[in-house]
Amino acid sequence: MEVLSQMMQLLFSGLTLGAIYALIAVGFVVIYNVTGILNFAQGEFAMLGALTCISLVNMNVPLWLAIILSIVIVAAIGGIFERTALHTARKSSVTTLIIITIGVSIALRGLAILIWGTQVQTLPPFTDNTPISILDAVLLPQNIWAVGISVVILILMMYFFNYTFVGKSLTACVVNPFAARLMGINPEKMSLFAVIVSAGVGALAGTVIAPISGATYDMGMMLGIKAFVAAVIGGLTNAPAAIAGAFLIGILEAFTEGLWSSGLKDVVTFSFLLLILFVKPEGLFAKASGKRV
């Protein structure tokens, strides 16, 4: 019984962590899918979302409105970022563009220090946060929100990329930008669209995390790394696979920490990443196709 409840607890924690990573990993995948760029400012979108939301709440804006507003604001910042930093350099190589995103992430962190300082800030939970006890393991409503939101995003993304015209056009841009252009799809517009969407999702991720662990200017970096690992493990081109990868990483971390040692958590995660890269570089859940990570 005790072992069972411990396992349940580890599973809950793993799912929560996984949900957080998943929301950021989706952003990686969306941008990669359309532009072929790995956007390392992805974690920073979450940071901006969380801190903007906290500021709005402190100005007595109702929580739900603050969340929506911060998603809109960060999506707009994402749009500006795409137009100014990526669009102007669109003729450069992918590597250059990736370096640009790293630069932008550093700039955004600097900006966040200027606006919010280095102090940790916190956001109230979305709903009453009384722990729910299941088989002696506890689950917090905020964790359910985190998992729920990523599952909804997962379904939306699956639907979006497979069943909508815009989603298909987005995919077309990365498979063959030239052919896509011949078909009347404008890859530049699609790139802007992709960055805006992933900035918005990132901001949502930030607002979900803030009540769980607080928010600081430098929270984006570690989130970005873990989400990147999740995305690579799942398969960079496939949003649902990346989300599955994120949950896998979260659960793996929770069980390593719970049954072994917290110091080994990252060792296990990154060893797993190496294993995947050597054995199945296209990602665990990716369909075998000509494309590789």
Partner: peptide, 20 residues
């Protein structure tokens, strides 16, 4: 005796061992 990261999000896995 154990450690947690400065960026810890959820320390419950570690705490299940403390509980034991």
């Amino acid at each position: 005796e154990d450690e947690f990261e400065a960026t810890v999000k959820d320390a419950k896995p570690l705490l299940t061992r403390v509980k034991k």
